[in-house]
Amino acid sequence: MFSSKAQLQKRTPENGTDRENFLSLLVDEYLHSSSYDAKCQVLANLANFAYDPINYQYIRDVGVLDIFLHVIKNESNEQLLHFASAGICNLCCDPLNAEYIVTQSGLKPIIALLKLNHNDILADTITTLYYLNNNQTKAEITTTEVIKHIRDIQNSNDKRLVNLATLYLQDVCGTKEDV
């Protein structure tokens, strides 16, 4: 459910931690934890916070988007990649976040996620690339390699992936082919 600042203030106890401080604590926990399970849990929580546009400014201010980008650039663990790709997907519909993702060299590692065999990551990745489509990114997100991966995804048994891939090819790549 989307929130307003008034709703957030109403739900925050008088001596409670405000949203920005809480996100900052989660970032610190992720950065300083040596436990894989703790990192996964924190990353999942951060991805959930990325769902509500009321959090976008806080997320930018405390570096959550940087963590998501770091994970997709440097990690190979699919669970961490899943949470990071979900967080990026939740954030990329905002123009400021989309611009940040592109200027921080996020396109190549996002495109690399198309090679994985994880349906949720693939769905998040196609959706993210769909939202990042503009004149600046078009050439990079419609390469022969990207189109090949998207066409391969069209052969999935997951109807959600088939539909996302088909829309991507039609709307972003301009192809009229169906499965």
Rank of each mutant, 00 (worst) to 15 (best):
T142D: 04
P53E: 11
V162D: 06
I72V: 12
R11L: 15
V162Q: 14
L167R: 13
N55P: 09
S35K: 08
Y51S: 12
T127Y: 09
T142M: 09
Q57R: 14
Q79Y: 06
Y58V: 06
A123H: 10
T166A: 10
N119G: 06
T144C: 06
S105V: 04
D178I: 13
D152K: 12
I101E: 04
I54H: 10
Q79V: 14
G87A: 06
I153K: 01
H82S: 12
T142V: 06
K39N: 04
Q136E: 15
L129N: 03
Q9A: 13
D171A: 15
I126S: 09
Q7L: 12
N134W: 02
N157L: 11
L116T: 13
P13Q: 06
I88R: 02
Y168H: 06
H32R: 13
A38T: 15
I126L: 15
Q79G: 00
P109R: 05
I153H: 00
V162C: 10
T17Y: 02
V71E: 03
K73S: 07
K138S: 15
L114H: 08
L164Y: 08
A38L: 15
G106W: 00
L114F: 02
P13T: 08
T166V: 08
P53V: 08
Q154P: 03
A38K: 15
E75H: 08
A38V: 15
A165Y: 01
L122C: 06
C40W: 01
Y58T: 13
Q154E: 14
F2H: 12
